[in-house]
Design a protein around this nucleic acid. Sequence first.
DNA 1: GCCAACGTTGGC
DNA 2: GCCAACGTTGGC
Length: 153
Amino acid sequence: MAKNYWVMKNEPNCYSIDDLKKDGKTHWDGIRNYQARNIMRDDMKVGDAVIMYHSSCSVPGAVGLSEVVKEGYPDFVPKNKKGRPKDPKHTKENPIWYMVDIKFKDKFKDKVTLDQIKFNPRLEGMMLRKRGVRLSVQPVSKKHFDEILKMAK
DNA sequence: GCCAACGTTGGC
DNA sequence: GCCAACGTTGGC
């Protein structure tokens, strides 16, 4: 039983819900934002439910569900997808960046688009609706989580 | 591809 | 510790 609910954003041409479905499970590496790091390191627990969200594509929106299967641990994936330069301050002795493992749960038959999310008054206050929010791992309330699931049907 | 909004960096 | 400059994100 999940205790916490999250939204994880990424770019589908980088790693889409279909990739996750194919792989079954993955480590969410390459996050280089302190707030997102803190969430992954401190707050995400095994069994937490995650809404997968696609951004920077023709129709942004929530596309599926996953579940946390491993809690935060240092991100030492040799090179991340975008091939960013290594952070020299990120060492084995003092890791800065963390990741979690998630497993595929479900792919929505119909994507819940950002338009729908913005239009639904019951999703008032959801972070995805706010302008300029760049946090790639976001907390979401159970109420909003359930509402998204309802919309996905 | 543009650009607004945000996070990070670095000079002072 | 302020804040301008810079880089990145993400909707359009």
